[in-house]
Computed example of a mutant assay.
Amino acid sequence: MADVSPPDKVRSARNRTRSNGGKPSGKVADFRYKRPSPSDPSAHRGTALRTGAPATGEPRRQAYAALDLGTNNCRLLIARPSGENFTVIDAFSRVVRLGEGLAHSGRLSDEAMDRALAALHVCADKLRRRNVSLARSVATEACRRAANGADFIDRVREETGIALDIISAQEEARLAVLGCHILLEQGHGPAVIFDIGGGSTELVLIEPGERVPRIIDWASVPWGVVSLTDTVGRAEDDAATRLGRYRQMRMLVSDSFAPFAERIADASRAEDIRLLGTSGTVTTLASLHLELPQYDRRAVDGLIVPAQAMRAISERLSVMDLDERQTLPCIGPDRADLVVAGCAILESILDIWPAERLGVADRGIREGILRSLMAGTPAPPRPAA
């Protein structure tokens, strides 16, 4: 048993609510939101930027936007419908490290909030210039966990006009599946889709459905690349220290995965099991597998990689020092100190779901939000205070 507890030991149990009277949920679309009443003034909280544009009744060619403020990154997509899909007309991504230090302090630091706000001001400017009238902006694990998370959300709205919703881990998992399941390798067996974030990792067990997969089970653990790195520490003095640090990361994550691993054990032994990952970790490792000189989304998004190749890359990175990792293409200084934690999480996932191949998705929550908005399913009203 690991000697360090997750930053929030009870959160995953507290949030593991399911529909259908406690039974596993059905289709991904089971969690789609009810259309809010036009007479309810709170119905579009968190969905529209303060631009004066109406949130409903727009022509089909209106611009939609999805903003995801995570523990490590701030990402924005602005798109217009294009048949059954959409065309991206603007995008933004910046490493903000909102959750830096959160594992020890329990609070968002002033420096981290300032970094995030600077990025959100850029997003607000893009939303206005693109005349976006329907958007959904979400915040995830860092704001869920931080004691001052709600205060930060209020500050963001006051200073930028962006109304962020702190979504549950269940909603985060649903949106990730909705955004990337189309890239799942063809087959009839069960599959796991996972999202390694900055502050948490979501895993979803699914089976094929008519149009969208059916969610059989899911879990969220409070280990992401930032929270795991901050908890274990950044000491990398020599190879032995780096190896011991990596083993501790693996132990912590494996312990947190244990209840989910037990529940999916029978499914993991089925034939034709499949695996799809969406995160900076899997896209970075896929880039190294392809030996790309620089990141190329077109080469990575939808790639199928042998799982053993991803393990080999993870093991190689785990014993490199920080300077060596920084020199590798597609890692650089932004990811060099966090990629090892991502490798530890990925290997732990491969332990409990031993698929021979791993699908790679450079898409997820934002694309899930856009698909929900374009299907006419805006965010639900916030509960009354």
Rank of each mutant, 00 (worst) to 15 (best):
D195F: 00
T229W: 01
S220N: 07
Y246F: 14
P222R: 08
I182S: 15
W218L: 12
E185R: 14
D255T: 09
L243Q: 09
R247G: 12
A191C: 11
D217I: 11
D255V: 05
V253C: 06
D217M: 01
G189T: 03
G198W: 12
S256I: 02
L252E: 09
S220I: 00
A239S: 15
C180W: 13
A240H: 05
P213Q: 06
A219H: 02
D195A: 05
S200Q: 04
S220H: 02
E185C: 03
G209N: 09
H181Y: 15
T229D: 14
H181M: 12
G209S: 06
P213I: 00
R211P: 10
I206D: 04
S200H: 08
D255W: 10
E236D: 08
R234F: 15
G199I: 14
R245Y: 08
S256Y: 06
G244V: 04
I182W: 13
M249P: 11
M251G: 11
R247A: 12
G197L: 01
L228G: 12
A235H: 05
Q248R: 12
V192N: 07
G197H: 02
V192I: 14
F194N: 10
G197P: 09
G198M: 15
I193M: 10
E202L: 04
G224L: 01
V225Q: 02
L252S: 10
L183S: 11
D195P: 02
D255S: 03
L203Y: 06
E236C: 07
V212K: 07
G209E: 04
G187R: 03
D237P: 02
D230G: 02
T231K: 07
A235P: 06
L203C: 10
V212M: 12
V204H: 05
D195K: 00
S200Y: 08
S200G: 08
D237T: 13
F194S: 10
D255L: 00
D195Q: 00
T201W: 08
H188A: 13
S227K: 05
S220Q: 10
G187K: 05
V253Y: 10
R211V: 06
L205I: 03
Q186T: 11
R234Q: 13
D195R: 04
V226R: 13
Q186V: 07
W223M: 12
E202H: 07
C180Y: 07
E207V: 00
P213C: 08
S256L: 01
I196R: 14
G198I: 14
A239I: 15
